[in-house]
Amino acid sequence: MKKLAGIAVLATAIWFMVELVPPEWNPDPVSATPAQWTSSNQCKACHEEAFSEWEDSWHAKSWIDEDVRLQSDNFENKVCIDCHAPRGVFETGVGNRVLPRSSRRSEGVDCLACHLLPDGGVAGTIDMPSAPCKPKATIELSRVAFCAGCHDQHKTVTQWRGTPMADTGPDCLDCHMPFRDGDPNRGRHHGMAGGHDLSLVQSAVTLEAIRAEGQIEVTVENIMGAHSFPTDERSRAADIFWRPLPTDPEQRDGWTHLHRIRDPYRTEVDITSTLLHALASQDKTGDSPRRTIAFTPPSGPIEVALFYKLAPYYRGSDGSVWKTEDVTDPLMDSRLVHRVEVP
């Protein structure tokens, strides 16, 4: 009986080899050497501080953030995957366009995306052969080109290269990955502060409003000027609203929309880009980092405010979507950057 079973198995195996496997099929197609570093979670034990900073960062949320999910149609818009779950920058080459991963996508832009070397080793700021990951000092980690694969897709790095800061600094890391507590010995903060960091946004732009010849002139300026404001993500926007100065300082509504600062998506052909450009912008439009908008409000003191938005739409707490011109309480879905009063 055992003999018969053995013959049956053998016959089936032979049939499988002959019939099912196409002639060109190679039964063992890929090198089986397992990579040592396969998840950013492996970095946590030794690099607790950096891991914790990254874990709270928007790099870590690039795959799971609700707005990203929505705007990418749950990543059915597959072009988004390339930057939201990229292969290692060193694998595709510093300064080159990134390519998408097939695995570990929920880790987003993770430790391995920046630190994993093509040979399976780990890039760091110093050589440390005694450490488990044996980091190799790799100067490219601190270069502007390192960020470009993703962040120049909307010309942020190109904008910076057109400014005097390309010669003098600051560069990407100076603003977005500063030393912890300003101390170079403590290493750089892995939170990668950007548009989600209100203080950084506040330091990038100013808002002024004056009364002149019966009108109110509102001036907004990209004073940091290292790149346009907002930049990189076309889902970002900044809105200027005004309202009569309320008697109750806690009052939230009563605002009227005045101006939107935003770069449209390709499909929004009826919208013009209104970004505040970088300093010494090479942009062919010659647009300046400073813009003044004049309007005539009813008499009486008013206040004008600049709000920053992480998504181009306004939504209420129930998820309902508002047209920008209908919004009277911008704080429903934005953050107050600056506010000025005009007597």
């Binding site: 099912l20 039964p27 197609p29 890929v30 089986a32 396969t38 695995s103």
Partner: peptide, 25 residues
């Protein structure tokens, strides 16, 4: 159906993680 066997083989533990995930998908 001809894709079944190659995909099953690519999903084996001996294969790189990235390939296994893609093969299972």
């Amino acid at each position: 159906p001809a894709c079944l066997v190659p995909l099953l083989a690519a999903s084996q533990e001996s294969q790189p993680h990235e390939l296994r995930v893609a093969a299972v998908r």
